[in-house]
């Protein structure tokens, strides 16, 4: 049985469904824009401090949108109980985790392609100068966030209150990641360059490594006996 074929089948299936239904991308993108606008109206957008607020707004928006995406991508397996069929397939846990992580990364990445420019423009950050470095932070941060989100969404997917429980559980666990990402982005936006942000970035990388390593095992544990 090839890992690659199973992975491609599951990820391809999820992306195809999303391209047809477009429900996650449309709703989540719109939601992220609404969140940014709410931040603008709550006063972050009109002082001389706007630039300092931008990284926080960016990461809070990503965190909000993330829970929508992670919950939804796994819920699709539960709706018609397709998960039962998947669990009967040979050595499926590894490919299933990898596929769900990739799909979450792809969807969240697509939304970030809109969110990052919108935040930088509305909060007056010179995107051209720091865009590349910010993209690196966003990519590294999203990786760890999605790894943890994938395993938690799968774990909670059998519970009735999963939509409420996911953020309650996910945000405190992600706090070190979000804090490090916000601080790293702040340093970049202030024009201090990647060198200054290295300390914060190493926390982000440590988070990525730890949760990628733990998630695969815990994902398998969470799916055991769930159907």
């Amino acid at each position: 049985m090839s890992f690659g074929r199973q992975l491609a089948a599951i990820a391809g299936k999820d992306l195809r469904i999303e391209l047809r239904a477009r429900e996650i991308l449309y709703t989540a993108t719109l939601f992220s824009v609404v969140v940014i606008v709410v931040f603008l109206f709550s006063g972050f957008g009109d002082s001389g401090e706007t630039r300092r607020a931008a990284p926080g707004v960016l990461w809070v928006t990503i965190a909000f949108v993330g829970t929508l995406v992670f919950g939804r991508t796994f819920q699709r397996e539960r709706e018609q109980n397709a998960i039962a069929g998947l669990l009967l397939a040979p050595s499926i846990v590894g490919p299933l985790f990898a596929a769900k992580l990739l799909v979450n990364l792809a969807l969240l990445g697509a939304i970030e392609l809109i969110v990052v420019p919108v935040v930088t423009v509305t909060f007056g950050v010179p995107l051209a100068a720091v865009g590349g470095a910010v993209a690196l932070v966003v990519a590294l941060g999203t990786l760890g966030f999605a790894a943890l989100g994938t395993v938690l969404a799968a774990s909670l997917s059998t519970l009735r209150l999963r939509e409420v429980l996911l953020p309650i559980v996910l945000y405190p666990l992600c706090l070190p990641l979000l804090l490090a990402c916000v601080k790293a982005t702040q340093l970049l936006v202030a024009g201090d360059g990647l060198g200054a942000a290295r300390g914060w970035l190493s926390i982000v990388v440590a988070f990525d490594v730890l949760y990628l390593a733990l998630s695969r095992w815990l994902f398998g544990q969470a799916l055991e006996g769930s159907a």
Binding site: M1, A9, Q80, N81, A82, G85, L86, L88, A89, P90
Partner: peptide, 23 residues
């Protein structure tokens, strides 16, 4: 009791998916 299918996919895609996942 549930169909265990993906309603957004066609009949052929549903079976193809199972074939790929189950080798």
């Amino acid at each position: 009791h549930d169909t265990m299918l993906y309603p957004e996919l066609t009949g052929r895609e549903n079976l193809r998916f199972t074939a790929d996942v189950c080798g």
